[in-house]
């Protein structure tokens, strides 16, 4: 229980900091530009070092193919494919698993978050489960899930969903518990029943936090993906990396890593846009 509370306050503190940085005195545009320039420079320097290392033969191409080789691999995998599937097909397989898991996780985690946020009994019941699950590395329970659910698609989705559960539960609980007392009282004095307060006040109040939980969960799920695809998969970006590694096709391994990073970045950006769309009042009231 204390762990959950700590986690929530930590997260709140982090978000507090970011919103504070954004709202009161806007940093001069030049500072933002300086940061972007520094980031771009870092990337360019790293790419240059990488190119130089492979061009001058400092590292064997078997271990570190040149950026151009990786770009070629990207083209090849995107058009003709690797182990019977194109990059897009691998990507669709992986995203399909992650989103199926996200869907399952939301259906279970949001009601649990409500139970924890609304009642001490709910907190008492679910806290031990969430606190047990939260620090577990998904690889630790992957074998058990396979024993229980076989090596098919179901166990992959279950492992990813389990990894996503705790962040959504914890964020939802924080959002529910943080609903403004005045707004709840306002609704009650306007004649709202308990159920109406839940649907019309608590749920919309918690949407922002639920989306934050989903954002963190997508990160956790995407991280678990490669592990889940190690076992008896025939498609997926994680599987692609794994089979490329077995044949020492290092350029495809590197390509897979870059693709996974890029997708993670894109997912994060999409959720942030959704958040701005669904919770436009955040930081304004």
């Amino acid at each position: 229980m204390t762990l959950v509370a700590d986690d929530i306050s930590d997260r709140a503190a982090i978000e507090d900091e970011t919103t504070h940085a954004e709202t009161p005195v806007r940093a001069p545009a030049s500072r933002h530009r300086h940061r972007l320039v520094a980031s771009a420079a870092t990337i360019i320097v790293l790419l240059a070092l990488w190119t130089a290392a492979s061009a001058f033969g400092l590292v064997s191409a078997l271990f570190l193919p040149s950026p151009i080789a990786v770009a070629k691999a990207f083209w090849n995998v995107a058009t003709t494919g690797f182990v019977d599937a194109t990059l897009l097909q691998h990507l669709v397989a992986s995203l399909g698993r992650v989103f199926a898991a996200l869907f399952a996780s939301i259906i279970v985690a949001v009601p649990i978050g409500f139970a924890i946020g609304l009642s001490p009994i709910g907190r008492g019941i679910f806290d031990p489960i969430i606190e047990f699950l939260r620090p577990l590395p998904p690889l630790a329970y992957l074998p058990l899930v396979i024993i229980w659910f076989g090596i098919g698609e179901a166990s992959k989705i279950i492992v990813i969903a389990l990894a996503m559960l705790a962040p959504i539960v914890i964020s939802t609980a924080a959002g529910v518990a943080g609903t403004s007392r005045d707004r709840i009282n306002a609704a009650r004095s306007l004649g709202a029943s308990r159920l109406q307060v839940l649907g019309h006040v608590v749920l919309p109040s918690a949407i922002g936090d639920i989306l934050t939980g989903i954002r963190i969960a997508l990160g956790a799920g995407w991280t678990t993906l490669v592990a889940a695809e190690l076992v008896a998969a025939s498609r997926g970006v994680g599987f692609m990396i794994q089979s490329a590694a077995q044949f020492l096709v290092t350029d495809v391994v590197l390509l897979g890593i870059v693709v996974i990073a890029a997708v993670a970045f894109a997912l994060e950006a999409v959720i942030r846009i959704l958040q701005r769309f669904f919770v436009p009042w955040l930081g304004k009231t």
Partner: peptide
């Protein structure tokens, strides 16, 4: 109850 409507100091409106 709805026979006693309340107006709050901090408006307590619903931003959604």
């Amino acid at each position: 109850g709805p026979e006693r409507a309340v107006v709050f100091q901090d408006d307590a409106l619903f931003p959604w």
